Simulated scan of single mutants.
Amino acid sequence: MVVCEVVRLRNASPCTFEIQAEDIFHSSPTIGGLPVKEEYFEVPPGFDAEADGLVVPWFLTSIDGLVIREAESGCILRCSAGPKVDNSNNSDWLQLHCLDWDPVNEESWLELGQRHFIGAIGHSVQLQLTFRQPRLLCPGMPPGTSLGHGAKDVPTDQRQQTQSVQGPMEASTLATWLSFASEVESAPACTVFLNVYDLAPVTSVVNSFLCNTMVKTFGAFHATIEIYGQEWGFYRQADPEQCGVCRSLQPRQHPIHVYRQSVNLGQTRLTDREGV
């Protein structure tokens, strides 16, 4: 299976959300460097923090899923990872469900990637979860009608009015407030990433068994550094006089090595020009 991890939480909305983390295979998460001690932890407006160990659980092993609750209305949305019912390409998806586990907003489910051989624990997908208030399509629309993830935030002076128009929140409406995106794509340009590759396609399955989020032993990997949209790595050259350091304008892509995951190393104070 593909292990789905939320590595950053942001709340750009005027509402407060509460999250319950539940996964029997992983340790309790830390948010902003602090361990989560309560059943739910709070994500108030303006919240922006790193998360560690916050896993969206596999649907077959989860009782509650990753639970997201809007504090004022008490509306609940469950998140889990797994294949779709009509899955034909062996992919895992980040799924959204209501309190009774009925599917919600299936058109917005995020494809995480293909599972490895016989469903073995595979690579990790690191995501950023951002809460944003969706805009109404136009004045007079029915309560709860809103735009999807691509909508811009409502201006500050209209937030209270929009909130009152929406009325009691339902799971399908709450789902439109959530935006899951790749951490690499969401991070500032000055963020430094260590990109990890399987050394070759034949090593991908072996690496998945020997080194994953549950078991960490050893494997055959290649690594590069990504910064400001460019990737720097070392490759053996035919000419021994060449240094071997290469730059790529297409990060996380290689004709031989198989991209596995990116590790956030923090942000650099150097500008793009200074870094070159």
Rank of each mutant, 00 (worst) to 15 (best):
L94T: 04
W109P: 00
Q166G: 00
V154L: 00
L136S: 03
T145Y: 13
G119R: 05
G140K: 02
N89E: 15
L137N: 04
E106P: 11
N90I: 06
T176G: 03
A171D: 04
G167T: 04
K84W: 11
L194C: 10
C190N: 15
D153L: 03
W177Y: 11
S186A: 05
R159W: 10
A189P: 11
C190V: 00
E111P: 03
V165P: 01
P103W: 09
D86I: 15
L112G: 04
P168F: 06
P134A: 07
V184S: 01
L99I: 11
N105G: 08
C138K: 12
N87R: 10
S186D: 00
P134K: 02
A175R: 09
T162Y: 09
A181P: 05
L147Y: 12
L94I: 05
G144N: 14
A181Y: 12
H116R: 13
L194S: 14
V192R: 06
V85C: 14
T176D: 11
D157P: 07
G82L: 02
M141W: 06
A187T: 04
G119V: 04
E107C: 08
S108L: 05
S80K: 09
D100T: 11
S91H: 15
L94C: 07
S182Q: 05
N89Q: 13
P143I: 08
V165I: 10
A120E: 13
T191K: 08
E170W: 03
V184W: 00
T130Q: 13
L178G: 12
K84D: 12
Q128F: 01
V184N: 00
F193V: 13
I121M: 09
C190F: 04
V154W: 02
L96P: 12
T191W: 02
E111L: 00
R132H: 07
S108R: 14
K152I: 03
N87H: 09
F131D: 04
N89H: 11
N195K: 13
A81I: 02
V104D: 03
L127F: 01
A81L: 00
P142D: 00
